[in-house]
Design a protein around this nucleic acid. Structure first.
Length: 568
DNA sequence: AGACGTTGCGCC
DNA sequence: AAAGGGCGCAACGTCT
């Protein structure tokens, strides 16, 4: 079937998919102006497939999360897109108007000075309708969806050109949009997951399953022994309140039942409780009911939410995909004849800081090996644990736990890097906004914090001052970490997008998992070595895209394994 | 009963 | 003396 799209010029193509599966397309120039006629086709999927085959334009659409699953379900993958919704959120954030409705309807309303409608509620996987939906419902009556899309996109391109560092922001928009494509693809592909192996792991840890409603055998036994340790006082070990009461009866006043609090208590129930907590956690969070809800046909298919975290990290909806406990990773096993390539960026955040701050001394000290070991040799008398503690303290704004001397050492050895995070913290404390390397902007403080102007008239004033100071410090820790975490997320997205492009050329290799600084590729055995090379190349590409010719190295450790648990 | 906040722990 | 960033999830407690 020919829809004639090959003849349409334009590096971008705006696309609206209508409820009946038809499509409306319009070729655009880079600046968003239409450079060809609007084309109506009866089959949007076929039109996209054909145009993609021809010259892989950048698809401009309202929402990747909304449109792409349907294309993908029909077997159509696209190379690039511009996600209007995600871009709108980035632009609003950059302008200090964080959290405003980001949908096409809202963006158009702002543009035309109309009342801004709220975003339609996010649709979850389970609630996906069977037909295409284009967000038309979110547009005021009488507005042509394609017209709205083209108009908003052109305005976005203009706004992008007006930010302080437009080149970087363009990269951010491209990376965010690529991330949205990958999130949909990865959610559809799923992570190879052997339910039989998972079940065996659970039985090994928790004991066999009991009758419905009853805990697994070992959990039940532990609960029984815990009760005995409290003098046959019947209790639920998973209820913090009951545990506190039981300890109080035994003469221990505890501030909480956190494991590090329990560890300090000399009582026979403590080791049993600690073991119970660990197993109970596995049972409720990644036990048999998780397995039944989330693993089907040998795949764990979580729903990834690109741009779901303010720092640009992904979130997930359901399944807890970003918190897979190490103890169940043994169930992640490659298909027969296939391998897993597990790659993670080593100490990504300190390296990102070194690059952002152009701290050549930190770059040189880090090299391309174990950053903390190198730092330890360089400044901490070989004590790697202290080097790591100090660096993480600097990134998170920690001051307690006796790390003061460590921070002092770092400040002395790497002033550029330390000044960078200190400055970000000061900006946050004074109420200013901070941005990532590519221009993602932090949200404003929800409660405005003012250090000045408090009237010390009553005795509560001192308390208020303390509260305000504490809130300002918390804000400073947030902005301090934001600049690094958000830039690390950008590096990871750029790496992922580059890797995806290479894997498409390679074939028989698919991205199956991504978590902040770690990626898993599932590929035929014969491709594994090439995938490892692709991973390393992607790291180099991402580094160059973000930081140009920085001396900072971003090693990406990749291992070829059959089972996720065997990596690192 | 349902909304919402808190606790505690999993991951980075 | 303390003052550790970002999430998701399940269970519990409180309010409505």
């Amino acid at each position: 079937m020919s829809v004639g799209t090959r003849t349409i010029p334009g590096v971008r193509v705006a696309l609206v998919v209508t409820a009946d599966g038809g499509g409306v397309l319009c070729p655009l120039a880079e600046d968003g102006s239409a450079v060809g006629p609007v084309l109506r086709v009866p089959d949007a999927v076929a039109a996209v497939r054909e145009r993609e085959r021809a010259d892989r334009p950048r698809w401009v659409w309202a929402s990747t999360a909304e449109t792409y699953p349907k294309l993908l379900a029909a077997g159509v993958r696209v190379d690039r897109c511009h996600d209007v919704e995600l871009t709108e959120a980035l632009l609003c954030g950059h302008a200090g108007r964080w959290g405003e409705p980001r949908g096409l309807g809202a963006a158009l309303a702002r543009l035309r000075g109309w009342p801004v409608p709220p975003d339609p509620p996010a649709r979850t996987k389970e609630l996906q309708p069977t037909l295409f939906e284009t967000g038309e419902a979110a547009l005021p009556g009488g507005v042509d969806p394609l017209e709205a899309l083209v108009e908003v996109h052109a305005e976005q391109q203009r706004r992008i050109g007006g930010v302080a560092l437009p080149g970087r922001f363009r990269l951010l928009v491209a990376a965010e949009s690529a991330g949205a494509l990958i999130a949909v693809e990865m959610g559809a592909t799923g992570l190879p997951w052997r339910a039989d192996v998972h079940d065996a792991l659970l039985v090994e840890m928790l004991g066999s399953r009991s009758a419905a409603g009853a805990p697994p055998r070992r959990l039940g036994e532990l609960a029984e022994r815990i009760s005995q340790a409290f003098g046959d006082h019947r209790m639920h070990p998973d209820s913090p309140a009951e545990v506190l009461r039981a300890f109080a009866k035994a003469g221990f006043k505890l501030s909480s039942t956190r494991s590090w609090v329990l560890r300090e208590v000399d009582h026979p129930a403590v080791p049993l409780l600690l073991e119970y907590k660990e197993l109970y956690r596995i049972h409720v969070a990644h036990g048999w009911s998780w397995l039944a809800s989330w693993v089907h046909s040998g795949r764990f298919r979580p729903e990834y939410v690109a741009g779901g975290v303010v720092s640009g990290r992904w979130a997930t909806r359901g399944g807890g995909a970003l918190q897979i406990p190490r103890k169940v990773r043994g169930a992640v096993i490659a298909d027969a004849g296939w391998k897993l390539v597990v790659a993670d960026a080593s100490q990504l955040e300190p390296r990102v800081l070194a690059a952002m701050a152009a701290d050549h001394r930190l770059a040189a000290a880090a090299g391309d090996g174990d950053l903390y070991a190198a730092l330890a040799a360089d400044a901490f008398d070989g004590d790697r644990a202290r080097a790591k503690l100090g660096m993480l303290g600097a990134l998170y704004g920690q001051t307690s736990g006796g790390i003061g001397p460590l921070l002092a050492t770092l400040r002395q050895r790497f002033p550029a890097a330390m000044n960078y995070v200190e400055h970000a913290a000061q900006l946050g404390e004074s109420g200013a906004l901070v941005r990532s390397h590519l221009g993602r902007t932090c949200p404003p403080a929800s409660v405005s914090v003012s250090l000045e102007g408090s009237e010390p008239a009553f005795e509560t004033a001192a308390t208020d001052d303390r509260k305000a100071l504490s809130a300002a410090r918390a804000r400073g820790r947030f902005t301090r970490n934001f600049v690094v975490q958000a830039t690390a997320a950008e590096w990871a997205l750029a790496m992922l997008a580059s890797l995806r492009a290479t894997l498409r050329e390679l074939g028989e290799a698919e991205l199956v998992f991504f978590q902040h600084d770690e990626v898993i590729v599932h590929c035929v055995e014969g491709n594994a070595e090439r995938v490892v090379t692709a991973v390393h190349d992607a790291a180099v590409t991402a580094t160059r895209l973000l930081f140009g010719d920085t001396p900072v190295r971003f090693p990406l450790a990749a291992t070829i394994v059959d089972c996720y648990a065997d990596a690192k």
